[in-house]
Design a protein around this nucleic acid. Structure first.
Lengths: 247, 247
DNA sequence: ATCCGCGAGGTGGTCGGACCACTATGCGCC
DNA sequence: GGCGCATAGTGGTCCGACCACCTCGCGGAT
């Protein structure tokens, strides 16, 4: 009754976003459930369809809603992967010192995840890890190496048993992020070193040795971290060509 | 030249989002810089103002852009706090087993951050920590305790020297998140224990003892984590009163 | 000459309607 | 009974208008 008088805080779109978020938070909207149509929702919240669409778009990019053309709007499964997809944006837009900070976080999480994986990994999962390890060593195509490298670490993160952590690590290792950092790193003949480090991680996993796994993973990420730190130190500028701002 | 023919992938809004993100990623749009008007941008990208507004709204909720009514659209400083604000959404919308996973991640990061802080914290920062510790012990108002509790950990995270990690921890400790979990936790007379744990963390910081700090922080978060795990185990339901879905 | 105030222009915010693209459903035809 | 197409309904896009708010410069008062 008392909420009929508009609180008038912020834009109507922002209010609509909060309303829908609240509905989900309170359990009035279950994962996978279909929402009313844009037009109905707009009427229910007393706003125009344009504003409602902006709210839906916002919740869509956040991974909370999913719009299917011609079908309807649905709540996602609200799983870690859905909601943490935006984490990749942070990695992609960060540069300079923040890249080092992101790698530091990845080192902390990746080492812990690898240690957990050493204790929990199943035979099947270990076989999957070995598959990517072999594929990584069997080709010279940087694209393919990168893909299997990502899958290698992803499999380990999943084996650690924490889906959320796996999703965060996935974001911290997004294609564009690694491509940017690794472009220079691997040009310095770091392939061999990378292979040795991956082999060490695999050995620790196969031996079910959490401490060795933690150390190997920390060293693996730490190598890249140190290299990047050194890159930024001397010149203080982020890599890449300086493109003058267009009109 | 070859990009003049529309690639026709996805919705025009999604394409606009990618375009603007790319402009920022390539450095053509600097942090803090003002963008052209919505109307001009729409013309430049060859889409309607409505679609452009949806793209801008999307980038706004991601913390990449900031729209000031009557003034213009600006690129944010792209700092950790700006981009990771959405991380709180994850915490707010997660429930059940995922809450435990989030606490596990917080335990890993918070313990490491506290260890780093023990080695790096300045006298001023330590005084600030003590201020919040004292304020926390001087009141019985749960709201105020929660606020100083958040500030206590935030100050430590900042002292660790990794802004990004501080921002993530901030998201993992968002008001609504903690309020939900702590409501039940603190009702079990955990105030005294919490105060002891905070005191232990402070002692380790004052003694500049990283290992003790790591252990104290891990135990602090671990306590809540274990309690929550126990809550979820027996009944398999998320805590809190079972409110029947409202109409 | 300096300062203050107010008004005009420009900006994002909201609205309503129209049409297009796609999907799903069911009815009728084979 | 099964298949295919017409159709209604959905999200996607566009347009034009108006509103609320901020900014800046012009003009007058001091």
């Amino acid at each position: 009754m008392d909420d009929e008088t508009a609180p008038q805080k912020g834009t109507v779109t922002q209010r609509a976003i909060e309303r829908i978020k609240a509905m989900i938070g309170e359990g009035r909207l279950e994962p996978g459930q279909r929402l009313p149509t844009e037009r109905d929702l707009a009427v229910q919240l007393g706003i125009s369809r344009s504003s409602m669409r902006e709210a839906i778009r916002a919740l869509t990019v956040l991974g909370v809603l999913e719009a299917r053309h011609g079908s309807g709007i649905y709540v996602t499964q609200l799983e870690a992967g859905d909601l943490l997809e935006t984490f990749g944006v942070v990695a992609d837009l960060s540069r300079g010192p923040r890249l080092v900070e992101l790698l530091e976080i990845r080192r902390i999480l990746e080492s812990t995840a690898t240690a957990l994986a050493a204790a929990r990994i199943t035979a099947d999962q270990l076989a999957e890890v070995e598959k990517h390890l072999a594929a990584m060593n069997a080709t010279d195509d940087p694209e393919e190496i990168l893909a299997h490298d990502l899958a290698f670490h992803r499999e380990i993160a999943v084996a650690a048993g924490n889906e959320t952590m796996a999703a965060i690590l996935e974001g911290l290792s997004s294609r564009t992020f690694r491509a940017r950092v690794w472009r220079g790193y691997q040009e310095e003949g770091a392939f061999a070193r990378t292979r040795r480090e991956h082999a060490a991680i695999h050995r620790a996993l196969a031996a079910r040795d959490p401490e060795a796994a933690r150390a190997a993973a920390a060293a693996h990420v730490g190598e890249v971290e140190e290299w990047l730190r050194a890159q930024l130190g001397p010149q203080g500028r982020s890599p890449g060509p300086d493109v003058p701002p267009l009109t």
